[in-house]
Design a protein around this nucleic acid. Structure first.
Length: 261
DNA sequence: ATGGTGGAAGGTCCA
């Protein structure tokens, strides 16, 4: 089974990109973040026409929004309202193989990395602490967690560890908490099993840099984790950078993982 | 130190 995750920054604007990607890469299950549309406007028909007939999504106008679309049946769908907000940042399903697949869009956190002055950063840290507590209690096997987690946890997940150490997405409180979630939840950070920790690895390049590819000031904000027991079944993991060069791209690129299930 | 761009909006917030 080939599972992908992608923050597409508007599913309606980017529908042709997503369809092209799904077809060209022969994806079976796609997890989207930042769909940015109400459910009534979600492009159901376009996805169904290329085989993604099982569609589960939660969206809102302008902000957030997550979706899990699958060619194969899905057994159940749920979500959690993290931090007591109904803000469409999470959805999870049970695949027919009984694997629980979580799709997250973690708050970006605003500019100032100070929980006492910046409510957005406070929200992000609270969200992470709730994730930590949830996955400490929920240590079942057969889980996958993907999404835009808006944190680049390792030194070489950013173009300059030194210059970004006080920039939201790479501050110690964020990276420490994310690594703690991985550790206590018994997760495997799949992409870092395929790319050594001393090599740069990014999934996002800012729109604010026109020559994004040449300057290559990226960050690894998007993630694909599997519970430890599943990792032997993972056959490949790749960040599909090509989409960043497509016309009017998302600032994030997809991750593709092949897993025998 | 600042601003750079893009998306949903149709002003302004968010990333």
């Amino acid at each position: 089974m080939r599972i992908a995750t992608w923050n597409i920054n508007s599913v309606r604007l980017r529908i042709s990109h997503v369809l092209r990607f799904l077809i060209e890469q022969n994806i079976d299950v796609i997890c989207l973040q930042e769909t940015k549309t109400l459910d009534e406007y979600f492009p159901r028909k376009e996805f169904a026409e290329i085989g993604f007939v099982n569609q589960y999504f939660r969206g809102e106008k302008s902000y957030n929004g997550v979706a899990i679309l699958s060619k194969d049946d899905i057994k159940e769908v749920k979500h959690i309202n993290w931090c007591g907000r109904n803000d469409t940042r999470h959805i999870y399903v049970k695949l027919t193989s009984n694997i629980e697949l979580h799709n997250f869009y973690v708050p970006a956190g605003g500019d100032e990395p100070d929980t006492s002055t910046n409510p957005k950063f406070e929200h992000k840290i609270s969200f992470l602490n709730e994730m930590l507590n949830f996955f400490i209690k929920n240590t079942k096997k057969n889980k996958i967690l993907v999404g835009d987690l808006n944190i680049a946890p390792l030194e070489h997940d950013v173009w300059s560890h030194k210059q970004l150490i006080n920039v939201v997405s790479h501050t110690p409180i964020e990276t420490k908490t994310l690594l703690e979630i991985i550790k206590t939840g018994d997760w495997i950070d799949v992409m870092r099993e395929f790319v050594p920790h001393n090599e740069k690895l990014y999934s996002w390049w800012s729109y604010r840099n026109r020559s994004w590819e040449k300057s290559n000031r990226g960050r690894r904000l998007d993630h694909f984790w599997v519970s430890k027991n599943l990792f032997p079944q993972v056959k490949s993991g790749a960040i599909y950078k090509e989409t960043r060069s497509w016309e009017r791209p998302s600032d994030h690129v997809p991750i593709i993982v092949d897993i025998n299930i």
